[in-house]
């Protein structure tokens, strides 16, 4: 009874949607971390993650194993995020928000062009030690594989780590203080600038996990692949509320499932519109995001 349920068309779509959705959730979470600390929406987030995971992939080409590749990608991501904040973003604090948008969009263009120049625009794949073959139950396919379960586990683990870090550690407290009241935090001895850099490093790291999952999947990763994922992640973050990490994660899962249902019951071409429709509806009902606190405007 249970097994026929897991293999039913509806569960097929939900599993496929969740597998895509966790990727969006991770990207959305990474956008929210930056947004909370620096009020910048980083359009280069996806491209940075792609670049870091490509560098990790070159380690695999040298015959090193998957876990090492993941660690290398993460390390590169941390470094990349920190450097980006120090060099490109720091001069923009206090300037009109359009400046930061333009700079991150330009950065997106540079990273993708450089990646295509180095690695061409073809798809690359990281071979995982985990099987990508779907489970079968009494002859019927259940849309879960060891790799998909690992993907869920990894995403959940990262989210839990981020939550614990922000809530229960001294560093997390400093990070939150710097985001909420930078002047007061500075007076109390928090090195706010350093906290902003750490926020960008963490965020880039979370993004890299998403890119590595995409690259390990059966479709692989190509240099501009993260553009669509960034848009979906952004929609997820806005729907959930850009200042709510929990909202971002739930938003990501929702978008993943919505896209899968559009794909299954309407048209494969229009799948990416599932998120856009949710965004428009959500904005009409609750512009500040479903899980966000309302803020008054001070005159």
């Amino acid at each position: 009874m249970m097994s026929t349920f897991l293999a039913s068309p509806i569960m097929h779509n939900i599993f496929a949607g969740l597998a895509q959705g966790v990727i969006y959730s991770l990207v959305a979470l990474s956008l929210v971390i930056i947004w909370q600390s620096t009020h910048v929406l980083n359009f280069a987030q996806g491209a940075m993650a792609m670049f870091a995971s490509y560098i990790g992939m070159t380690e695999i080409d040298r015959g090193l194993n998957y876990w090492f590749c993941l660690v290398v990608s993460l390390a590169v991501g941390f470094l990349f995020g920190g450097l980006t904040e120090r060099i490109l973003i720091r001069p923009l604090y206090g300037k009109p928000e359009i400046n930061a948008i333009v700079v991150t969009v330009g950065f997106l263009g540079v990273i993708e062009a450089v990646a295509q120049a180095i690695w061409t625009s073809t798809t690359r794949n990281i071979a995982t030690p985990l099987s990508q073959i779907y489970f079968h139950d009494q002859g019927r396919v259940v849309l879960l594989s060891p790799f998909v379960l690992f993907q869920f586990g990894l995403a959940l683990g990262i989210m839990a780590l981020v939550a614990v870090l922000f809530r229960f550690t001294n560093l997390g407290l400093k990070l939150r203080a710097s985001a909420l009241a930078p002047e007061v935090a500075r007076l109390l001895g928090v090195r706010v600038n350093r906290m902003l850099t750490i926020g960008w490093m963490l965020s880039a790291g979370v993004g890299v996990v998403a890119a590595v999952i995409v690259a390990s999947g059966s479709f692989g990763l190509y240099p501009s692949d993260m553009d669509g994922i960034l848009i979906a992640g952004f929609i997820a973050a806005v729907v959930g509320g850009l200042d709510s990490p929990v909202g971002a994660v739930i938003g990501g899962l929702l978008i993943g499932i919505a896209e899968q249902f559009v794909l299954a019951y309407w048209s494969a071409d229009l799948a990416s519109l599932g998120g856009l429709i949710i965004l428009v509806v959500a904005l009409m009902i609750r512009p500040q995001g479903i899980f966000a606190k309302s803020v008054g405007r001070r005159v």
């Binding site: 929406l41 928000e97 948008i101 848009i231 952004f234 229009l270 799948a271 990416s272 856009l276 904005l283």
Partner: peptide
């Protein structure tokens, strides 16, 4: 739906729109 948004929200919303043209 967009004029209620500002700055980065608006940029992302319009980006999502332009990405939808090619699939349509």
């Amino acid at each position: 739906p967009s004029t209620r948004l500002s700055g980065p929200y608006l940029a992302g919303m319009t980006l999502a729109f332009s990405a939808a043209i090619s699939p349509i």
